[in-house]
Design a protein around this nucleic acid. Structure first.
Lengths: 101, 101
DNA sequence: CGCGCCCGTCCGCTCACAGCAGACGCCGCA
DNA sequence: TGCGGCGTCTGCTGTGAGCGGACGGGCGCG
């Protein structure tokens, strides 16, 4: 697994998963943020993997999306498994760009 | 799931998972910390769920344990699923004690 | 058309905490 | 006994978590 290239980082995968669920639910970013008790700008940053949310923040947003940490961690692990070697290279580019920012 | 009581927090589950893997590997805390490039005191805190490690720290410790983020997130989700209602109450006590500290 | 509202993101800021150095207690061993 | 290793405690500082104000864009309405 490690020999296939570096894995994406937790905060990126978590952000992707949160945004995916939110869009599946048809919620706006602003609405989810309000329900979670966080600022919209912060949720935006979370979803884009720009910040390391605290465990309580993760739980709050999961609650606002009517999901749970189980589903989040499962979703993240599934995303990682679905990443084929070529796609992992793309994820590596994303991680590199994030570092450049 | 949420109706069964509050879920444990990410940092606690992650810490439990990391310590579990480390002990399975027969590594000392000091050795894993050295291999991961973090301080032993910090790894101790991570394992006890006292700190919110950054995504890079998680990756570094995973690498030191010859595991990956996939296995970590899977392990965390499995821990959550194995927590029966009674055990979730115990996990709730742990989260409460952590808040008191 | 201009306006107001909503959306999501940018920018700058403050203070709490991430991560660690030094210290400590405990244990096993020569 | 002293030593080295283990894991945790204590205190510290620089950094980043989380947010307020601002911004640009889209949309509906008079």
């Amino acid at each position: 697994m490690a020999s296939t290239g570096p894995e994406p980082l937790w905060r990126h995968l978590l952000g992707d998963e949160l945004r995916g669920i939110r869009q599946d639910r048809g919620q706006t970013l602003t609405e989810t943020a309000r329900r979670a008790g966080v600022s919209p700008q912060y949720l935006s940053e979370m979803e884009r993997g720009l910040k390391e949310p605290s465990s309580e923040m993760i739980a709050a947003v999961a609650g606002a999306l009517d999901t749970s940490l189980v589903d989040l961690t499962l979703g993240v692990s599934e995303r990682l498994r679905e990443l084929a070697p070529a796609q992992q290279a793309q994820a590596s580019v994303r991680a590199t760009l994030a570092l450049a920012a």
